[in-house]
Design a protein around this nucleic acid. Structure first.
Lengths: 241, 241
DNA sequence: CGTTAATTTGAGACCATTCAATTTCGGTGG
DNA sequence: CCACCGAAATTGAATGGTCTCAAATTAACG
């Protein structure tokens, strides 16, 4: 399938969960959307806001986060092109966390009502959407395990494994190389570590020849090794539903 | 509404999310289910299993957990009566984590196909179900924050705040007293701490007059204090959708 | 090419862990 | 009703992984 329409990557992504009719595909393509661009670290959604629309990433990375009362930040997930960063807001209405762009980002903003209408009228698409939010949920569960029970090396390794798999799935790998714009501080905020310790942990992983990571480029040198260090089992990503 | 039917608590719970017609209510009540009882620590669902049914708690507590390769355990959520412990399995099909009973437990087991059929035929119920899974998801996000960024006192306090709110909502409080069958080891597995440190942390919370917890009974003595220690903001529970 | 952001390094402090032993609790049978 | 037992809770002391604070180095960008 060649991508002639900006929403085709979404069609392709969702059609892995449910087989779509031509009508289903067209209904997705006909979603009214507004294209928005965000610079680095811009807020796409704010906690407590009434959510008027859902944001699909066309280009760039985004992340969800929550701020503690003492100013500490916990990153809750990272998102890559073809993914909605806040599909749940289409249903729940009020945002329970923040969403920020990680780098320069292009977003297709779809109104809540259009999402709901599509779900109402297209059973197959509705199920794909539900599955999408459920896989999200599964990833959060795995993150609870990651920050709750694994040591620093395993946490970082596990996170990298997850992102590598997800990037591969959208065809974002270039022969083992990945554009990887996360700073060490963001890696730290996602794993519940400090930036300093994240730095030392990455050095340890590099020293063992598991990976290279610099200048925003990640190269996995020893996938099996990284997987083992991270105690990584991709079942939770539900690649085949 | 008086509970004449065993599934009425579920009807009541879901009807907070969406207004139901009489037909909707009856459709829920007519869900075919099998009543099962489980002793303490029995497995209700196992990771990797093809899920044939969804389990609604009629009595008792349950929890979801994942095991690491080194045998460590992370508890991912607790569940109380009126809640499904694995509604997502109705859609995803394959269980990505374990579910265990916490104490003596009565479950209504509903087949996947019945869940799906109900969702297909009853738009309002379908939305309530989706909302249920999305609130689940929101709770997982908050747990990532809890184990990722808070210190031991805040983690325990936050978890207790959440359970208190949820127990109150199903009317399980008896004038500030709660049946609270969690062991310190389970509390530890849920907060990413050790049982020993959980013990010392609980003592610290008791010493400050925030709560009493012994013999499976919890009494909150200083709700505002506990809330503050736990950095607790209940927005994420989405009480009003 | 200057300026700021990001990464790296060092040393000391601390929160939580580990390991081991003791006490209390809850349930059971005599 | 009490003695007994295993599970749960509690205590102590030593260890250790991660944090904190501060400074130096390197990379990114206009």
């Amino acid at each position: 399938m060649s991508d002639v329409h900006p929403l085709d990557p979404l069609v392709r992504r969702w059609s892995k969960y449910r087989s779509f009719s031509t009508g289903d595909r067209n209904a997705i393509r006909e979603l009214p959307y507004v294209r928005r661009t965000f610079g680095k670290d811009a807020y796409i959604v704010r906690e407590g806001e009434q959510a008027g629309e859902c944001s699909l990433i066309l280009r760039g990375f985004a992340y969800r986060q929550k701020l503690l009362s003492d100013g500490d930040r916990q990153i809750i997930s990272f998102h890559i092109p073809t993914e909605f960063v806040d599909l749940q807001n289409g249903v729940l209405g009020i945002a329970d966390h923040n969403v920020q762009s990680l780098n320069h980002c292009e977003i297709a903003a779809v109104s809540r009502s259009a999402i709901i209408e599509l779900a109402d009228q297209r059973p197959a698409v509705r199920m794909a959407m539900w599955i999408d939010t459920l896989i999200d949920s599964s990833i959060f569960r795995e993150w609870v395990v990651n920050v709750g029970r694994r040591d620093s090396r395993a946490r970082i390794a596990h996170l990298l494994c997850e992102l590598v798999i997800r990037l591969q799935r959208i065809g974002a790998d270039r022969e083992g190389l990945f554009d990887f714009p996360l700073t060490q501080e963001q890696l730290a905020d996602a794993t519940g570590l400090t930036a300093v310790h994240t730095n030392r942990t990455l050095q340890s992983l590099r020293r063992e020849g598991l990976l290279q990571l610099s200048n925003g480029i990640l190269r996995v040198l020893d996938w099996e090794g990284l997987r083992e260090v991270g105690d990584f089992d991709e079942l939770y990503l539900h690649q085949q539903v």
